[in-house]
């Protein structure tokens, strides 16, 4: 696999580049939209929820921003990853190449996009007078895991999507539900103890929570939290690879 990746690294780079070019082609603001569109979404949420929920909470702006950005990274990566086989069906029919490159390239694009949007966060941290702390180095851990978590999920979804087009609608609904379960604009401390535990089942929330505790409080989460995230990532990635490998030879007949 590493060998294939090495051989096709240039293709991967071009695919990522193509994603960005296609995304912003014919827009006058171009790549600025990467920052602007989550910023607008954020502004709307701020306008609505700041007064409702965040009254008594310090740094609510950054608190919400971490949630919004992480969630949109997750949503972008998996949705575009899901459709990657179908979008590249023409190529898959004519040229032999390792097909997993397509979801991978979409995930890399989404990850780069995420890093760009993190600029907003830095700005707001500055406005909110939240000093950067040394523990932020630890953020690399959830970021790498989050990437592979999204990649694994993309592989699962993309494989299923080839066979069942219904998956996109189901997943859309699922994502809507998940959005409200990620504690993006509310704080879980209002929930009962049991509900809080239940919230930890949601891996996306796990990643968001990790980020919040490091950025807002400068605290590295417990060993347990690390292991839970690692467990989820390994599980999803493993499942993704297995599902992909079992079905990759059949894709071409359904595309």
């Amino acid at each position: 696999m590493i060998k294939t990746l090495k051989k096709y690294r240039y293709l991967l780079a071009r695919l990522v580049q193509r994603d960005f070019i296609q995304k912003y082609k014919k827009t006058s603001l171009g790549i600025i939209w990467s920052v602007l569109s989550p910023l607008c979404e954020f502004a709307v949420l701020m306008f609505i929820f700041k007064n409702m929920f965040g009254r008594d909470m310090p740094h609510f702006t950054v608190y919400m921003l971490i949630g919004v950005l992480s969630y949109s990274y997750y949503s972008n990566a998996t949705t575009s990853g899901m459709q990657s086989f179908l979008f590249n069906a023409g190529i898959m029919h004519k040229i032999k190449l390792p097909t997993w490159l397509f979801p991978l390239s979409k995930n890399i694009s989404a990850a780069i996009n995420f890093l760009i949007t993190c600029i907003i966060m830095v700005v707001f941290m500055f406005i909110d007078q939240l000093a950067p702390n040394l523990n932020m180095v630890w953020l690399l851990y959830p970021f790498v895991l989050f990437f592979f978590f999204n990649l694994g999920l993309s592989l699962i979804l993309a494989s299923l999507y080839v066979f069942f087009k219904d998956v996109q609608y189901l997943y859309h609904i699922f994502n809507k539900l998940l959005y409200f379960c990620c504690a993006i604009f509310w704080t879980p401390d209002r929930l009962s103890e049991e509900s809080q535990k239940l919230l930890m089942i949601n891996p996306v929330y796990g990643f968001i929570d990790y980020g919040r505790s490091v950025i807002l409080y400068g605290e590295v989460p417990s060993m347990e939290a690390h292991l839970i995230l690692l467990g989820y990532t390994v599980l999803v990635m493993l499942l993704g690879v297995v599902i992909y490998r079992c079905n990759r030879n059949k894709f071409i007949f359904y595309l």
Partner: peptide, 25 residues
């Protein structure tokens, strides 16, 4: 005609197509 993008110039398209065939930069 596979793997060409109408909005890219010819040089970019050659690079893309070559990459699809698995060649290095």
């Amino acid at each position: 005609g596979t793997g060409f993008d109408g909005d890219l110039n010819l040089r970019e398209n050659i690079r893309m197509r070559g990459a699809l065939l698995g060649y290095s930069k």
